[in-house]
Design a protein around this nucleic acid. Sequence first.
RNA 1: CCUCUCUACAAUCGG
Length: 351
Amino acid sequence: LGTYNMVINACGKLGRWREAMSVWQDMRAAGFAPDVTSLNVLLAALGRADRWDEVEDIWREMETVGARGNLVTYGSLVSTFCKASRVNAALEVYDAMVRLGLEPTSMIYSGLMALCSRSGRHLGMAMDLYEEMRAGGLVASLTTYNALIHGLGLEREWEEALRVYGHMREAGVHPDLYTCSSLVYTLGLAHQIVLAIRTFNELRQDGLQPNLEVYNSLLMACQVNNEWKVAMDYFWQLQREGLRPNIVTYSTLISACTKGRMWRVALQLYDRMQQEGIAPNNFTYAALIRAVGSAREWELALNIWQEMRRMGSHPNTHVYNALIGTLGRSGQFELMEQVHCQMAAEGVTRD
RNA sequence: CCUCUCUACAAUCGG
């Protein structure tokens, strides 16, 4: 039996999951009943090879025949289902292990919480797991804290996010750049721009040198809060610090120009990015058309649309929605109809 | 003899 297990394990380590499976079959054919370790090495082999369906089949079979694994088995199953984003399967495994009276390890909690915090639907579950884990005296990892903060941010749960951040610091876990951008982003989305900027400054004083993602999150926060001027200040600042703006930076800034009707600034940014050799994409064009459209500059919007097509870009739904919205708002209904036809001709659908 | 996971940046709309 030990020999079979070793062979399956060796196959798994080499990524030979088919061989691992066939050794498993041989073993049963030869009259050896697989033990928990056999199961674990097989699951590890399949998980490592991303054979998610096979792992799920084995899990279903375990359930139907009432087979029970140990902590290693359940940890392996959870980590595979997390990698596969199979929330339901992962939670079933968790339930099964709790039913058996096994205490989940912090690795199992971390995987589940990161998985659940990726979708608003399961965020409540992530927070339940978080409380349960804390109650059990376990400390979450840095990446788990970050995932929770980000997940809460997407759902505009900024107070909860700050609470988790507080726990993190109490536990002596040091924030990194992911923590910083998630917090800034979270606070920005929740219209807490003052807190977002304060957090950004505090973390910098703690010695975290912001990278472009952090600055882009900050620009996003400014954009959401109609602070185009503040956004521009940070745009200069990040360059003084030696960072090079990318397409996300420019697209976000152009969006920030929409609400203040700063369409000239938006156009300048558009020119500047091209001078720097950054090719605009549909995000950029949609933002630019909205920026000029907000000032009823419908002719400019049309020019931009024509220019992008001349340059070989394929406008998508967002670009067309921005353009059609601009024309409609400007009372250009005939043009709107024409653009609409062109959109249909290009096979782009509304919505 | 066996699992070692997981995290951050841009698109609704209007006055």
